[in-house]
């Protein structure tokens, strides 16, 4: 397969995943901001949304202050944000269009439908319209996943598409968790207090894991258990360990198809082994934040190894 084709598929996967993530962050922020709490809780919720999206620098540089209007607009469709929901869907479509022959009609229609649907929805300002907008985006990613898993041949085209999604998802989950730990709780709020509790449940909701949490732990929501769920639990499809497992399996499929393993496979396998040997107590001992920073940088390292090995 042409490297350019693989690259477009990989980025289609990444952008679609990211659009979904942004929609989930915004949904959580809307919910948190609506919570009756001390002054500043709402503002903190919006600032955290920006931080989770990893665009704090660009946001600040754009001379905006974080509030409901500015953050919603910035993360969803601001023309000066190159990684807004709209920009991600547009980039996904541009990438997909350049490799149309490698996609099934169903998959193309899911992506193109997302693009056309967003154009029709415009830039809603009313809160209920905006929530519908976010629901549409989440629906789009389900359609995308469904179309790819139900219609695509299981060959390198499919593996690259999924690989992009898995790399992006790992990055997103890690960032989400980190923001909750370090930014979210406004000054004066008690750890373990009502707001703290609400924030944790919202975080779980954000990644569609509130019910899963109760099934797995049968306990009220506790930070270290949430971290355990999102970092180490292999049953949880968004956990870092799950993402890592998916990355390894897609890279293995590629290695089998091509009959050759390379640096990307070696790096990915080594990281997966680390997951198997780690427990949540160790992670907290040495600091969750530090753990996540390391994870993010290794994830980036793996992404560039994939890039060097296949996409240039």
């Amino acid at each position: 397969m042409l490297s350019r084709t693989a690259e477009s598929l990989y980025w289609t996967g990444r952008y679609m995943e990211r659009a979904d993530f942004l929609a989930r962050i915004l949904e959580a922020a809307v919910r948190l901001a609506a919570l009756p709490a001390r002054d500043g809780a709402a503002a903190t919720a919006w600032a955290s949304a920006i931080a989770s999206a990893g665009v704090s620098g660009a946001f600040a540089a754009s001379a905006r202050t974080p509030n409901e209007k500015s953050v919603r607009e910035y993360l969803a469709f601001a023309p000066d944000n190159m990684s807004s929901i709209k920009a991600c869907i547009t980039s996904a479509r541009t990438n997909a269009r350049s490799v149309r022959t490698a996609l099934t009609i169903e998959l193309w229609e899911a992506i193109n439908g997302a693009y056309n649907g967003l154009a029709e929805l415009g830039e809603p300002t009313r809160r209920d319209d905006f929530v519908r907008y976010l629901e549409f985006v989440k629906g789009v990613s389900l359609a995308f996943e469904g179309a790819s898993s139900r219609t695509m041949l299981r060959n390198d085209a499919y593996w690259f598409l999924r690989l992009g999604g898995a790399i992006e998802r790992a990055d997103n989950t890690a960032r989400l968790l980190d923001v909750k730990y370090h930014l979210l709780l406004p000054a004066g709020e008690r750890v373990g207090g009502q707001l703290d509790y609400f924030q944790w449940t919202t975080l779980l909701r954000e990644v569609s894991a509130l019910t899963a949490y109760r099934w797995v732990y049968r306990e009220s929501v506790r930070p270290w258990l949430v971290a355990d769920l999102l970092v180490l639990n292999r049953q949880m499809p968004r956990s870092l360990a799950s993402c890592q497992g998916m990355i390894v399996s897609y890279l293995d499929k590629l290695a089998t198809d091509y009959g050759r393993r390379g640096p990307a496979q070696r790096i990915a396998s080594a990281r997966l082994t680390q997951f198997n040997e780690t427990n949540i107590e160790d992670i907290f001992q040495s600091g969750l934040h530090e753990y996540i920073l390391t994870f993010l940088s290794e994830n980036n390292g793996l992404a560039s190894a994939i890039h060097d090995q296949y996409l240039v």
């Binding site: 397969m1 042409l2 490297s3 390198d156």
Partner: peptide
């Protein structure tokens, strides 16, 4: 292929592929 998919090294034309 587009121009960027091909390159020349040592007077031989190559295509950039995932393999």
């Amino acid at each position: 292929v587009e121009g960027g998919d091909l390159f020349v090294n040592d007077d031989i034309v190559f295509m950039r592929t995932t393999e």
